[in-house]
């Protein structure tokens, strides 16, 4: 099963700590000084409507529409998750339109290449931009570790089984109550 981060709207207080942690986890170590409004592009977004506050992010679908929609095989299943091979991304935005959760975006970053000790500018490079579960970060997804109300959890097979077990127990309990 692909792992994914899930948000509990009954715990979210809309504080956006997750967004900052996400941006920092993908800043190549630049730290908070590197943050600025123009370049702030977290892969997790807090959404606030009249009735709900919660974070939304990639579900790492098992049969992912973004994977299916990509004409260049840039989106792949790897490490029990959906990952983007950025060098293959064309920036065509098919994946953006395919994603039913609105959590895929295409962003552009300055493209550079080193050649003979010189840095050459190659214009811009497109990137399909979404939650990568902070693969490579020892402590796991940054958003999960900072959420002050523990509204975010990393759902893997084990956590999913535990959730399902609890739900089935509750269903059994409720069934018993109805029978009584």
């Amino acid at each position: 099963m692909n792992r994914f981060v899930t948000a509990n709207p009954s715990k979210c207080i809309g504080c956006r700590t997750c967004e900052v942690a996400c941006a920092l986890a993908h800043s190549d170590g630049a730290g908070v000084e590197g943050l600025a409004p123009d370049t702030f592009k977290p892969r997790i977004r807090m959404v606030r409507t009249a009735d709900v506050s919660t974070a939304v992010m990639c579900h790492h679908c098992e049969d992912a529409p973004c994977v299916n929609a990509c004409p260049n095989n840039a989106i792949v299943y790897r490490q029990n998750s959906v990952q983007v091979e950025q060098e293959r991304c064309l920036g065509c935005k098919n994946c953006v339109l395919a994603c039913p959760f609105g959590v895929m975006d295409v962003v552009t970053v300055p493209a550079v290449r080193s050649f003979a000790g010189m840095t050459l500018s190659l214009g811009v490079k497109a990137q399909a931009h979404k939650c990568d579960l902070c693969v490579g970060r020892d402590a796991g997804p940054a958003c999960v570790s900072v959420c002050p109300t523990s509204a975010l959890t990393l759902m893997d097979r084990e956590a999913m089984d535990e959730t399902l077990r609890r739900r089935r127990e509750r269903a059994a309990q409720e069934a018993a109550e109805v029978a009584a």
């Binding site: 504080c15 956006r16 967004e19 900052v20 920092l24 000084e33 590197g34 943050l35 600025a36 702030f40």
Partner: peptide, 22 residues
């Protein structure tokens, strides 16, 4: 609001907090 504090002399000089709200 959650990201800024008091007169903002402190939080207004923090890059992350200023990025979220200005």
């Amino acid at each position: 609001e959650v990201g800024h504090y008091s007169c903002r002399s402190m939080t207004g000089n923090c890059a992350a907090l200023q990025t979220l709200a200005d």
